[in-house]
Amino acid sequence: MLFLKLLGAALTLAGTARLGRLLGGRYASRTREIGRWRTALSILATELGFGALVLTQALERMALAVGGHPGGVARRAVALLHEGESSAAAAWRQAVTEASPRCSLTPEDEATLLDLGVYLGATDQEDQLRHLKLAEERMVGSERVARGEQAQRERLLGTLGWITGVLIVLMLL
């Protein structure tokens, strides 16, 4: 009987601790995703500015280089452009919106990407670089906030997981 109680207590503690880590992990994943987007925007600026590639090629290269959520959005936007009569802005908006339920970005981060899409490919080179730089700076700001939140909440949620587990065990014993 004691053995079963101890086993139950251990499982409860492990479960709540894991839950705490999982909840905290969402913050880490957001930080990683924003970092990826920052790299993606920087690559895009290089390809459009110095490589002078057409937009679809630049997006494909960016997708290849960074992968993940930005890569998925870029590949989807290229597919939409090739298959229909979407404008670049419409294709980008659809790609970002479709991917949004599967990512950890906040509505503010998503707004940064959607704002960029309005100008993507549609203005001169100088303007393209300016908008990409602006989006990148907004992402840097988001990343800073996300890192702060990650540092704070990740530890907090981890500890909360353990404490919750201990409380449950104490109540049950």
């Binding site: 057409v54 679809t56 452009l81 670049a88 549609a122 001169d124």
Partner: peptide, 12 residues
């Protein structure tokens, strides 16, 4: 846009 391959920046 389509004729420009959505790349106005290349045709300044």
């Amino acid at each position: 846009e389509r004729l420009l391959e959505w790349s106005v920046y290349r045709a300044g």
